[in-house]
Nucleic acid binder design. Structure first.
Lengths: 394, 394
DNA sequence: CGGACTTTGTCCATAGGCTGGACAAAGAAC
DNA sequence: GTTCTTTGTCCAGCCTATGGACAAAGTCCG
């Protein structure tokens, strides 16, 4: 178990870095803004802000962009972040496809690349990762801030993938390897948690302090942003809710237990249930999650039943999360969100049924959409935090 | 919902305070220790440590206590915390009794006082609080570090009790009132969460970074210590697991729902179940939790069944906590712990049955004992953290 | 149009606090 | 007794926040 080590001492350099990140964050969140306004918002003196902005200009991260309207005195000089001052390469190592993108500081995708996995695993899969990074770095780009990788499975803070079942990776120090090979800062993180962090960071200036994002697709995983920080847990497994047991006497799960959330509420599970129900009733078997969504939207009772059952199961998980953590913003994203309102209503109903009324009243379960790029954006967000100190605590 | 405000700027004073708390913590955890050793452990220069220790001596918090053994050079001067340099008054506002104590910096109880509630609520209950504090402050004591209050119910970070059912308090700004009346720093916190923080802080030097303490008595509540900090949640309700729904078709709960954890696993619930079971079977009805524990220990199948059922229900809650948070140290404390091993085994079994094998293997469910003073110690720990900066992050 | 007032951004002297080297005191090893 | 280590303090230097002063550039009002 991780023990509390002695925290690092505080130095002047850290103080400076902290204040620099305050300025950066003001610039990032509040668009073109004057030095004086930054000083008011952050509490820093105009002197310090001036120096820090000068540093950012030196680094090519910020520039003056004209004057703003006067409020009774000298008109302010507006300073703006240069969105394309840095680029990043981030990857989403999906079930069947590896996706990569070149992003700017705003998380805007400049270029993409994909590779089909075609059953590749182990070293072959690692080769694909290099391949994608090389392809994206071959084109024109600004200085690279770092490389970000989102992957299923458990990843420690050093960037070592403890295990990722479908890629047959165990204890793969991917982070260190990529960092050494490309000589660039590298972040490797679990995909769901990366997605959660993206949802948090790109929320804009009034991001909540706490947020839980649940990604429902082939698997189910959540990321917990607590006090503005992605929470790891002791074994870097925080948010791995796919194997919470929902129906103790339910279907077997590949994890060895019965009735895990994934056996009930994941996209494959929903398809399976729809298949059996349709076969039993002798009606047409839906071939995709979209087909089920369409049928449910059209009022097909069978489809609605399947959708609602899946939603309720997820609602139980939501209830246990909100009950335990009292986090009031839950964002659900991933391919399952095409199921739309009937599904969300079931999630909300069940969550409400299982938590204190006062708590449930203030908890919002938000539809985050398919969020296909959430993982790509997530490791981007992690790089922004780690390399630029875009978010800070204290 | 709480939004991320702009974090405070960093100043030299903060840097100093941070480093001061590192020194204090070394002193607190590692007993009599030399300045040089502190410097090595914290990474601070001997110069800084010397200054900071001098400040602590100035404040009467530390003193030199002789020389240590030489390791080949000048023998180190050992410095020690003065355990009784400050005292605190802390209170545990229980169901039927208010308990208070005067504690020193080590959480050692110097004097106690209690008052029976006898149905007092509202202002009468507040009067009792004053009464207890006055009684303890009347005797001899060192300078008072602060006042700490642990209470059931939801308490915000300002020390306002949002609601506490049994005392019929709503939105009572107890913290501010006491602080103003006694002109002393005051901490008010939920009792279970205070207890959790005590369990964390008084664990000693190798306290884990994450810990969950679950208090099972008349009610059930948990406290979450995540990354060394008590986690609040958006509405200061983190850890309020007593009303997680375990049996959707179970017994009605006073909260308005059915089958909450408290209707199954709390001490009153266990007594109730034992009562009905015994009445049904026509055997002697156990009058106390201790009697049930004794019967179970003696092999009474009826009692064992009740104990195990309660344990399993708690195990479900543990599973959902560990599954979601991946926190590997769970401490269970409170009056229900007299149920002993049969109960703990049921908790562990059920938790194991419902979480990933790899996770369950490393998770320990520890018997924290009745921990009658945990709430008193908990607000003491909170005061130590808040007023002396005994624990810090970064 | 001109003077009074505001706001902005920079400059400068000051001070807080960390850094690292120097040094004496105190002990061990030979 | 000499040399080497370790400890604790002192001191000069540096980084960085602070707050006042000031010029530039506006608005507002007569």
């Amino acid at each position: 178990m991780a023990r509390t080590e002695f925290p690092a001492k505080a130095t002047h350099a850290q103080t400076r870095a902290h204040n620099a990140s305050l300025v950066l964050r003001a610039l990032y969140d509040l668009g073109p803004i004057s030095r004086a306004a930054i000083a008011r918002l952050t509490g820093l003196t105009r002197t310090s802000v001036g120096e820090l902005v000068a540093e950012l200009e030196q680094d090519g991260l910020a520039q003056e962009v004209g004057r703003g309207p006067s409020t009774g005195g000298k008109a302010p000089t507006l300073v703006s972040l240069i969105d394309d001052a840095r680029h990043m390469v981030t990857l989403d190592l999906g079930e069947r496809t590896f996706t990569a993108a070149l992003l700017n500081l705003r998380g805007e995708i400049q270029r993409r690349a994909t590779r089909n996995l075609d059953g590749a695993d182990g070293d072959a899969a690692v080769a694909l990762v290099h391949d994608l990074i090389d392809e994206l770095l071959a084109g024109p780009h600004s200085p690279i801030l770092g490389i970000g990788v989102g992957t299923p499975g458990i990843v420690d803070s050093e960037g070592t993938i403890r295990w990722a079942v479908n890629l047959s990776w165990t204890d793969l120090p991917l982070g260190k390897r990529l960092a050494a090979h490309y000589n660039l800062p590298t972040v490797v993180a679990n995909d769901s948690r990366a997605a959660a962090f993206a949802t948090f960071l790109f929320e804009g200036e009034d991001r909540p302090t706490n947020l839980i994002a649940i990604k429902v697709g082939h698997g189910i995983g959540a990321g917990l942003v607590l006090d503005g920080q992605l929470f790891d847990g002791d074994g870097f497994g925080a948010g791995e809710i796919g194997h919470i047991v929902i129906e103790p006497d339910g279907a077997p799960c590949h994890c060895g237990r019965f009735g895990c959330l994934e056996t009930v509420a994941s996209v494959p599970a929903i398809l399976r249930r729809a298949f059996f129900q349709a076969a039993e009733s002798g009606v047409r078997i839906p071939q995709s999650i979209e087909a089920i969504a369409a049928a449910a939207a059209a009022g097909d009772e069978l489809a609605l039943g399947v959708v609602r059952a899946a939603g309720r199961a997820l609602g139980m998980a939501v209830a246990s999360l909100t009950g335990a953590l009292d986090v009031r913003r839950i964002v659900v994203l991933g391919s399952a969100t095409v199921l739309g309102e009937p599904w969300f209503e079931a999630i909300r109903d069940e969550a409400r049924r299982r938590t204190l009324a006062t708590l449930a009243r203030d908890t919002e379960v938000v539809n985050g959409g398919p969020a296909d790029d959430a993982v790509l954006l997530g490791t981007c967000a992690l790089l922004l935090t780690r390399e630029l100190g875009l978010t800070v605590r204290r």
